[in-house]
Design a protein around this nucleic acid. Structure first.
Length: 945
RNA sequence: GCAGGAUUAGCUCGAAGGUCGAGCCCGCGGUCGAUAACCGCGAGGCGUUGGUUCGAUUCCAACAUCCUGCACCA
């Protein structure tokens, strides 16, 4: 029964699928997540890869004081891409997320919540409040990371506030301690005398402050001829300049720049040494009448010569320092090692006394009656008066300048030298060859064994290790791991007994670091223990806690302690560039102290997240993009795809507009899949698949292109070049598939008899393409790949989840036995596609001239020079389908003026009638009386049906 | 100020000592059998100034702008 003309449409194999065009990601992703959770997919992946080579990416712990931001989201997505791609490459790649829970920011926030109550609370209560706070954000961040599709051992993460972790921190410290790396000593730190506490640099804010500024005469107390013969017998002085007169009692040295020129100015019978560049200014300020230079010399001439303190019986040493600048003052810097960071360093270098005579309340002690017992600010004027009365005050004025303030109480802070714990960078390594084989030098040589990506990381970290001071690991705080060391009550010296240390580590492992607060020394120290220094028998507990960097630096040590089969070193660390100062460095040092090797084989550094103007993204600026918000409105997949779209090794731009754009792109990829699925509705690979060698050549060519595509993508996964994958996938979907292959294939898929070899060949190809593409995209588009997975034909042995599957190999795509590459075929088809582009351009010209509308309304004459003509001749019968026109006539080459690329395309209106079924034009429409409105090709198909 | 990095189309990127290029966006058109789709065509660029070179967007130097970390000091 011949179909009526209106029923012809029902004889066409139009695409059909229930795979929705609209993704509805915000609604569907949470359902997918629930399913994964219920199926315990992460555990099933572990089980599936058990026994495969391990690949351990060790997670850097984010800080638990707020929700995640775009940078954190990107960081986790990148790690997820790596873990999933390694998994699909056949590795056993576990991922244990971690969190950094201790430290100041949390303690400060909790302080604010507690208000004045904190002072009345015992440390354990404060710690409990902090723990609750940290746990709250750990839970929040965990939910947020999962929401963007990150896979990992989320039900059993590592956290720096767990007993096992805390004991590892302490054990790591003892490893340093027992090997002689640790000492306790003075150091100048920021000190808030209002809050009576040391401050970290991050807790200091610069605000304007008005200070008295004084120019003070320091008499020279050495032989002037040592500087220059011209000065012999002169009454010599130098002039210092300071904005903190209260530090003068602590003045131990005057610093000169080694290479800057200084001048000795004679005026009123005395001689003054100041920097040449500042001489005029200093002479004017200090009212030096008629100054004239006696000698010029570099600052280094003054090293280790003596001066006299203006009001104390103390020799002041001439020292050299590179930080002396020539922009303000006199070029001579009064140096009080107990009250300045740089002064302190200089003091260490020259062996100066750094004892602080300022107590924790900021009151001067052990001083002259004029200022004894006064607060530092109140001492300024009396000291100034004292200096003046001795004739040493040459000038004074008020200066407004930027000065560090406490970020909590906003009072100005001071530097104050206090006892701190240090890890010395100059300690010889255990079993070392000599004293030049120190923690610093060995670390520097071990840095070279790590692969840094980008490569500048090696230089950057080396520079930092090269110049960094000893590591100050103590903090006078509550929320952290206590430095669990006993101190002799009599002499104050620490007890370092490995047996006792071990006992405390075990205690921490059982009961957590809180047990340091609940146990008294007597519970932990054997009764007969005596101080090795003074033989006293009474001990007290150290009250400082560890720098949090020491804690997070021990993270891989903690993980390996719990998972002994994990490799040392780990395969990869991946964190932002700020971690060269932080985690990369502290992890490296902790590993050096315990294993004498780095904890990582590879270190990768993503860039910073910026807004569309190139400004750093931050919540306080209000230019941040919230990944959780994007996930809620556009989908977690969009956050993932955005992460993949940018070159993460550089600073990356994130914005609403970019997310929208990526979302558009997502639709394109999704539609490509939808088209594949919609043409497989009647395809069962076990029955219908066509062997490679029997496939149409276009299909063979496209499958080989797919193999090349898969190779590129897999290579890019290995290189962590996700943005290349993003662009390669786009290109493949848009240019190779949608615009070329699928467009050409429509005719064959729709028109040919459903079970015809031609159609089955095409279906086999797109099935394999879909199967390859879904796997290759799974690490990045984890939600959508999983959604697509069951829509593709189910063959036996196929995994339940795409995330359990492997990347496709060439034999998966082509079938066994097919040659992976065919250069001739590739070149031929590249040329054919080139000709196609020329034809499409010619069609567009004809369209513009209103000669044709759709391509099928055209027939074309094509002529080409050799050897292209020969090639076209071979494919002559296929050309009309390749170009999607109704007819192609191949003509021998004739030399024509203006022919481009050896091709001439002429477009004409197609001859004959439009076939009502396939829309091609044919002169034979109507020849078959059974089907009078269709072409010869369609009538043949219809007879077959 | 010190250390490290960046600058290519409106956006995201790729390549290379020899006329740079892709996708998206945009404009125009086609199609109405992937339709909250699909196809084609078009427009559009190497931060600035020097140097090396036959030739530089590429190599070198300086400058500018931006990012990160450190130092911001007497």
């Amino acid at each position: 029964m011949p179909p009526e003309s209106k029923d012809l449409k029902s004889t066409i194999n139009l695409p059909k699928t229930t795979f929705p065009m609209k993704a509805n990601l915000p609604q569907n992703e949470p359902k997918m997540l629930a399913r994964w959770e219920q199926d315990r997919l992460y555990d099933r992946i572990r089980a599936a890869r058990k026994g495969s080579p391990l690949y351990v990416l060790h997670d850097g712990p984010p800080y638990t004081s707020g929700p995640i931001h775009l940078g954190t989201a990107m960081n986790k997505c990148l790690k997820d891409f790596i873990v999933k791609s390694k998994t699909m490459s056949g590795f056993d790649a576990p991922y244990v997320p971690g969190w950094d829970c201790h430290g100041l920011p949390i303690e400060i926030k909790v302080d604010k919540e507690l208000g004045g109550k904190k002072l009345q609370m015992p440390p354990l209560s404060v710690r409990n409040a902090c723990r609750k706070y940290a746990q709250k954000y750990l839970d929040l961040q965990r939910t947020q990371f999962k929401r963007i599709g990150v896979f990992g051992r989320f039900d059993q993460p590592y956290a720096t506030m767990t007993p096992q972790y805390e004991s590892t921190v302490l054990k790591t410290f003892f490893s340093f301690y027992e090997n002689g790396f640790v000492y306790k000593g003075l150091r100048a730190v920021y000190w808030c005398m209002h809050d009576e506490t040391a401050l970290a640099e991050a807790e200091v804010e610069y605000e304007n402050h008005t200070s008295p500024t004084v120019w003070v005469k320091y008499a020279f107390a050495d032989d002037p001829a040592k500087i220059d013969p011209a000065l012999a017998g002169k009454k010599l002085n130098t002039i210092i300049w300071t904005t903190t007169p209260w530090t003068l009692p602590a003045s131990m040295a005057v610093a000169f720049h080694p290479d800057e020129e200084y001048v000795a100015l004679e005026s009123g019978g005395e001689v003054y040494i100041v920097a040449s560049k500042l001489a005029a200014d200093a002479a004017a300020k200090c009212n030096l009448a008629d100054p004239h230079p006696l000698a010029h010399f570099p600052g280094r001439k003054l090293e280790r010569l003596n001066f006299q303190h203006p009001f104390l019986d103390r020799k002041i040493l001439g020292v050299l320092a590179d930080y002396v600048t020539m922009d303000t003052g006199t070029g001579v810097v009064h140096t009080a090692p107990s009250h300045g960071a740089e002064d302190f360093m200089t003091g260490v270098k020259y062996g100066l006394d750094a004892t602080s005579n300022v107590d924790e309340k900021g009151i001067l002690r052990n001083g002259l009656p004029e200022y004894e017992g006064l607060r530092v600010w109140d001492a300024n004027q009396p000291i100034l008066d004292l200096v003046k009365s001795l004739g040493a005050l040459l000038h004074s004025e008020k200066t407004e300048h930027s000065y560090p303030h406490c970020w909590r109480c906003h009072n100005p802070v001071i530097f104050r030298a206090t006892e701190q714990w240090f890890i010395s960078m100059e300690t010889p390594m255990p079993g070392s060859a000599g004293k030049h084989d120190t923690l610093r030098t060995r670390t520097l040589s071990e840095i070279k064994t790590v692969k840094w990506d980008p490569a500048w990381g090696e230089e950057r970290l080396s520079n930092m290790i090269q110049t960094r001071p000893d590591w100050c690991i103590s903090r006078q705080r509550v929320w952290g791991v206590p430095i669990a060391v006993f101190l002799c009550e009599a002499c104050g010296k620490p007890l370092n007994d490995p047996a006792i240390n071990k006992k405390v580590v075990e205690l921490f492992a059982r009961n957590g670091a809180d047990s340091w607060f609940t146990n008294e020394p007597d519970n932990l120290i054997p009764a007969d223990t005596k101080c090795p220094h003074c033989s006293a028998a009474k001990f007290e507990k150290e009250s400082d806690i560890f720098d949090v960097w020491l804690e997070s630096g021990a993270s891989y040590l903690a993980l390996v302690a719990a998972e002994p089969e994990y490799p040392w070193p780990s395969d990869l660390y991946l964190e932002g560039g700020d971690q060269y100062r932080g985690w990369f460095q502290s992890s490296l040092l902790c590993a050096m102290g315990t294993h004498a090797t780095p904890p990582y084989k590879n270190v990768v550094t993503p860039g910073w997240t910026l807004d569309e103007k190139g400004q750093a993204m931050s919540k306080s600026r209000g230019n941040d993009v919230d990944p959780v918000d994007i996930a809620g409105r556009l989908g977690g997949e969009v956050v993932r795809l955005w992460t993949a779209s940018v070159d993460f090794r550089e600073d990356v731009v994130g914005s609403e507009a970019l997310m929208q754009r990526v979302g558009e792109n997502y639709k394109k990829i999704r539609n490509t899949f939808r088209y594949i699925l919609s043409n497989l509705y009647d395809f069962d690979p076990t029955k219908d698949a066509v062997p490679f060698e029997e496939m149409q050549e276009l299909d063979q060519y496209m499958l080989r292109e797919t193999v090349a595509f898969a190779d590129d993508v897999k290579k890019s996964y290995d290189d962590f070049a996700f943005h290349k994958i993003y662009h390669r996938v786009n290109h493949f979907c848009i240019v190779d598939l949608s615009a070329f292959y699928f467009d050409v294939l429509k005719d064959r898929l729709y028109i040919m008899a459903p079970k015809s070899q031609a159609r089955r060949s095409a279906q086999t190809a797109i099935w394999q393409i879909g199967e390859a593409l879904v796997r290759l995209l799974a690490p990045i588009m984890s939600f959508t790949s999983e959604e697509i997975w069951p829509y593709l034909p189910q063959v036996e042995g196929r995994e339940e989840s795409v995330h359990l599957a492997h990347f496709p190999a060439a034999t998966d795509i082509l079938g066994a036995g097919a040659t992976e590459r065919d250069e001739k075929q590739h070149e031929d088809w590249t040329k054919l596609r080139n000709v196609r582009d020329n034809v499409l351009k010619a069609l567009e010209d004809a369209r513009e001239k209103k000669q044709i509308g759709g391509g099928l309304e055209a027939r074309i004459d094509l002529s080409a020079s050799e050897p292209l003509y020969e090639l076209l001749k071979t494919y002559e019968g296929q050309l009309r389908y390749l170009f999607i026109v109704s007819a192609v006539t191949l003509k021998p080459w004739v030399e024509v003026e203006g022919a481009v690329g050896g091709i001439i395309v002429n477009v004409y209106a197609a001859e004959g009638q439009k076939c009502e079924r396939c829309w091609n034009y044919s002169t034979q429409v109507g020849e078959d009386p059974t089907y009078p409105t269709v072409c010869e090709r369609c009538s043949a198909v219809l007879k077959e049906l």
